[in-house]
């Protein structure tokens, strides 16, 4: 190595997530929603979702379920972006 240093922290550094201010809580809430969306689309949750009935907007339920989570993630992204770009700490 051409350069090296001994005072580099060993663990992960999430600059934006430390502490308990509003933007940090918001980011954590966002990550929580996305994680839920991910879990909902995988085993062991997705197998318990009804596969065909009831139909939603003409789609079998399991199909609408996947599309629904895409919409939820979209909503979460919009929420996070609006808050970040309009808040006092926005760039």
């Amino acid at each position: 190595m051409s350069d090296s240093s001994s005072d580099v922290p060993r663990g992960l550094v999430f600059g934006a997530l430390r502490g308990g201010t509003a933007p940090q809580r918001r980011t954590l809430a966002f990550i929580f929603v996305v994680t839920i969306a991910g879990v909902a689309l995988l085993w062991p949750v997705y197998p318990f979702v009804p596969s065909i009935e009831p139909y939603v907007l003409g789609l079998p339920f399991s199909f609408a379920w996947v599309v629904g989570w895409l919409v939820v993630v979209f909503g979460a992204l919009v929420f996070l972006y609006r808050a970040e770009e309009q808040g006092p700490e926005g760039e």
Binding site: D3, S4, S5, F14, G15
Partner: peptide, 24 residues
């Protein structure tokens, strides 16, 4: 990574914000 020497802070500072870590 843990067995090798870390890179210089000046290099890493482009990518990670060390201020937050100092605050903690």
């Amino acid at each position: 990574s843990l067995l090798t020497t870390p890179h210089a802070r000046e290099r890493l500072a482009h990518y990670v914000s060390f201020e937050a870590e100092r605050a903690v």
